[in-house]
Design a protein around this nucleic acid. Sequence first.
DNA 1: ATCACCAATGATACCGGTGTCAACGGAATT
DNA 2: AATTCCGTTGACACCGGTATCATTGGTGAT
Lengths: 344, 344
Amino acid sequence: MDETPAKPRANDPTIEDVAAAAGVSIRTVSRVLNKSPKVNAQTRERIEDAIAQLNFRPSLRARAFAMRRSFLIGLVHNDRNALVLDSIQRGIVTLTSARGYELIVHAAPLEAEAAIRDLVDFAERSRVDGLVILPPISGVPGLAAALENAQVPAVALSSVPIEGFAGVILSEERTAGAQVARHLLDLGHRRLAIINGPADTASAMERRTGFLAEAARHGGVSVAEAAGDYGFASGVSAAEQLLGAAQRPTGIFAANDIMAAGVLKVAASRGIAVPGDLSVVGFDGSLLTKMLTPALTSVLRPFAEMAAAAADQLIARIEGLAAPLPFQATLQIVAAESTGPAPQ
Amino acid sequence: MDETPAKPRANDPTIEDVAAAAGVSIRTVSRVLNKSPKVNAQTRERIEDAIAQLNFRPSLRARAFAMRRSFLIGLVHNDRNALVLDSIQRGIVTLTSARGYELIVHAAPLEAEAAIRDLVDFAERSRVDGLVILPPISGVPGLAAALENAQVPAVALSSVPIEGFAGVILSEERTAGAQVARHLLDLGHRRLAIINGPADTASAMERRTGFLAEAARHGGVSVAEAAGDYGFASGVSAAEQLLGAAQRPTGIFAANDIMAAGVLKVAASRGIAVPGDLSVVGFDGSLLTKMLTPALTSVLRPFAEMAAAAADQLIARIEGLAAPLPFQATLQIVAAESTGPAPQ
DNA sequence: ATCACCAATGATACCGGTGTCAACGGAATT
DNA sequence: AATTCCGTTGACACCGGTATCATTGGTGAT
């Protein structure tokens, strides 16, 4: 003995046991495991019987080692994704587990340089086969290049194409922003306001662009703007500012559900009825929407589907297969209780 | 060539390169990597230099293969954990990554038999070194035995000791339930109500026991009960039932924040002021509490710490080290805006 | 001086799969 | 009949670490 204590653990059957049981070589068993077509049907059947008999499962570790792949996919998120993390993970896992991959998660810092260092380190340390990266981290400038350099395949969720990322799952944020404006305009609102997301976040800016453009198409509409950072506190202070103004808006679009919750809170504290005096629209279609009072009108982002599409693209890339069709998520505004006709 | 296309990918330095550079054998390099004390200080230094020089990182795959361990820990959750998943994952990851493990996630079905099959399959397929299991799945009868049988070390988060689980991270749900009752009683409430969690969930029942016991200690207090399943809809219907009664309660304790949100919604729709006419207490201290209007008084469960403690225990078990001290989380009620003095 | 002993180190097997390439047998072609 | 070819299969190296055990040189005990 040198160091470290002994290891217990039962001995699982190996490919060799299966080969012996089926009377073939291990290489042929391996072919069956990998669904190679070059195996005689009867031989295959014999081997499959032996596998079932022995309850054999190929060692993922040995397989990973031999193939220089880990069969692990990394999901990079951050605390801004907390409310939708569950659905995203679900979306990815349904796909990855069907393809023989597992999902490993990693929370990354938001600051650009730290994020890049952290992600490269994570990828090298964990030896994932690829990464799915969520916004806003996906938008960090230089990240794509750094991962490319580290030879880590990555797919990003984003609203706009990202320089350097071959695989990006897009969503039509701009159109969605316009949809929100349309919704409020149709309800008769003429004094609108928007609480933006972080200025360096492309998707937030896309929403803004769409919203402002649609509002501008309509004469006699004013739009106030307030800054936000997707955090609840920033939603509250933006709402304080907007609702404290002399001519306060009757319709507010917050760039995410969390900030919209802040607006509801401020409205309540000031005795402003929602939707009687004020309509509020959020963004994300998170769990929050139906739990708030009133239930929040929001733009539903199909996170699970987007994440699944990202994983699909990623695995295709990893395995050198033809890439699936580029996925562009369609966003849909879902009207609930927080929006109504503009007050007289 | 047989099957599958060629693989590109740069060649990382291996332990052999390091050994050559430092003029030693690979075994000695391996000792340095594993922090074995039996290496001469100068030799160690030379090797460490070589490692830094070559920017060598040992292949996790090779290491995992050789040691018959994966250095992966599985987190088993389910959709009931959606709101707190982020903090739990964070808690685990901070600990696991410091110890050289990565976290892989898996959502399990809630139905008992399906959950057991699914978990055993997951553990064998992914070859994790151990599992951290969240409630309510951790309470599935027979799960501990099944995992034991499959030789998968597991640690569970739970409110009560679980038959068969050696490592359980406990939390004082009963005391917490009593704290909630105390809080409401101190505010002068005498007509109380509780919306329970699922009857088969031990922690929910513990909360109930503590709550009822504390209320009973006080003369002249009535407690109405309604069933819930931790879902938002069940919170709404339970609230409808409780608030529609002739003598409606002035203080409601919901067994989780989500159902409490349902109570707030029903109260609003009936014109019942919170906390003026009705006080509401939730449970979990999730993200939701501060986003609701009014902000929800809730019992804070330190999920991140509990999860970290679970991972700590698990790794100790995996590595055959002395188990860290059993962890019992203390729960703290955090008063916010949804509770106030009982109406006259 | 001899030997037992210990700290430090190295040679080599081993983990359980996949990749390469050669071999084999029967059918089709010449 | 000889040759080619293809479908099928197997022998063996290899992936990059760790485990076992032997070896070496120095030190203290006898």
